[in-house]
């Protein structure tokens, strides 16, 4: 039963710098269902990136356990079952967009021979088309706008075909208009493939717009304050996004954060 879920159990992380210690995460417990869109929402320094990196196996926890559909992060990573979408697009400047998007097929080929490997790469041309990049397959990253590069990075994540996608503020470097349209694109593609997504953001609006559940985190020490259900209909059309219910949810999430943080922003 546990193997169809992501379970975070009593996770904590302490960074030691000389004599001083930073408690980046304290007693983090949560369960995410397969196919859910989860956002980690909270102010700077509350440990969102730390938590995401621990889930990805890029960082190790000080205490506690993680199960990603029955695997440890290291095992899941070895199976190429984790797709990582960083803040900058991190595309390789010397590869065409199509080859960039196919990165997962060029590396760690051993993963595809491991028995029980269920990951299957998606068709890059289809994913690129869905993200509006059909005409830029042969282009180099430098020839694309920032928003297009970020879409390519998301395409790379989907093409990997991993059941879990981790995204750390992938839109934070974009302007507001670009961000708006790229969020909708992301939702479209996600509806189609239904990966489990853990998405980090500073924005209550973005969190509510994208997620099934919003994990509200507070800093010093970093911890989960509460998890808010976003029971708004999908697909999240413009209509939904302009509804009273949506606005109320955004206000609710902001309110919960302020209450937990004990600070007026």
């Amino acid at each position: 039963m546990q193997s169809s879920r992501i379970v975070l159990h009593k996770l904590s992380k302490t960074y030691k710098r000389g004599d001083s210690e930073v408690r980046a995460l304290v007693d983090v417990n949560a369960t995410f269902e397969e196919g859910e869109f989860i956002t980690l929402f909270g102010p700077s320094g509350c440990g969102k990136t730390t938590l995401l990196r621990i889930i990805a196996g890029l960082e190790s926890q000080s205490e506690g356990d993680i199960s990603l559909f029955g695997n440890s992060p290291a095992q899941a990573s070895r199976l190429k079952n984790i797709a990582w979408v960083p803040q900058s697009s991190a595309l390789l400047p010397w590869l065409s967009i199509r080859n960039n998007v196919l990165l997962s097929e060029f590396v760690n080929k051993r993963a595809d021979r491991i028995v029980g490997s269920t990951r299957k790469a998606e068709d890059p041309d289809e994913v690129l088309a869905d993200l509006g990049l059909a005409d830029f397959k042969a282009a180099l990253p430098a020839q694309l706008s920032g928003g297009m590069r970020q879409r390519a990075a998301i395409a790379r994540g989907f093409v990997q075909g991993a059941p879990l996608m981790l995204m750390d503020e992938p839109f934070s470097a974009l302007d507001e208009l670009t961000r708006d349209s790229i969020r909708l694109r992301l939702l479209d593609v996600w509806e189609k493939h239904r990966k489990t997504v853990v998405f980090v953001t500073h924005s209550a609006f973005e969190a509510v717009m994208l997620s099934d559940r919003v994990v509200v985190m507070t800093p010093r020490p970093g911890r989960i304050h509460s998890i808010v259900d976003i029971n708004l209909p999908r697909p999240r059309t413009r209509e939904v996004l302009e509804s009273r219910e949506f606005e109320e949810k955004v206000r609710e999430v902001k309110h919960i954060l302020r209450e937990g943080w004990g600070q007026d922003e």
């Binding site: 890029l58 070895r78 900058s88 990165l103 760690n108 993963a111």
Partner: peptide
Amino acid sequence: ETLDVFNAMSANRTEIFFRLRLPG
């Protein structure tokens, strides 16, 4: 950040060298 992308899919040292460090 690029290194993170490679590490998250468990790319090995040789791959990181030939696909990332050397061309870069």
